[in-house]
């Protein structure tokens, strides 16, 4: 579980979904940020972070996610989270992430809300 976080990306037109697997700490957060910034530089303005395979997040990981949200906001894009464990969802709410990025129970509802093509 504490192996480096793995991130996979699925692009859907002008949007993308990032799938994380593992611990969102400093290393994991940086990996997510790096992939997210690449996508933003590539013109992606709608990003869904699917955290289904992530069970732990620490405060440093959270601060990096906030940076990612701020950067996307700066570019007038949108970010949403989906498939959070109850613990992580509560953490995001307390830490204020939920103020700037919507949280959805599943990827389908996130995609629908953000206007992504239906999951293949």
């Amino acid at each position: 579980m504490t192996d480096d976080l793995k991130v996979t990306v699925q692009r859907k037109g002008d949007a993308a979904v990032l799938y994380t697997r593992g611990y969102i700490n400093n290393l994991g957060g940086e990996e997510i940020a790096s992939r997210a910034y690449e996508l933003m530089d590539d013109g992606i303005r709608v990003l869904i972070l699917n955290l289904q395979e992530t069970k732990i997040v620490n405060s440093i990981g959270i601060s990096i996610l906030i940076e990612v949200i701020e950067k996307m906001t700066e570019k007038e894009g949108r970010i949403a989270f989906c498939c959070l464990t109850p613990v992580i969802q509560k953490t995001f709410q307390i830490m204020g992430l939920a103020q700037y990025a919507k949280i959805f129970p599943d990827e389908a509802s996130a995609s629908q809300e953000l206007g992504l093509p239906a999951a293949s």
């Binding site: 579980m1 504490t2 700490n25 400093n26 069970k55 732990i56 997040v57 620490n58 405060s59």
Partner: peptide
Amino acid sequence: LVRTMSLVNARR
């Protein structure tokens, strides 16, 4: 263990 790592920013 999950909670411990999360609370104190530990890697292990």
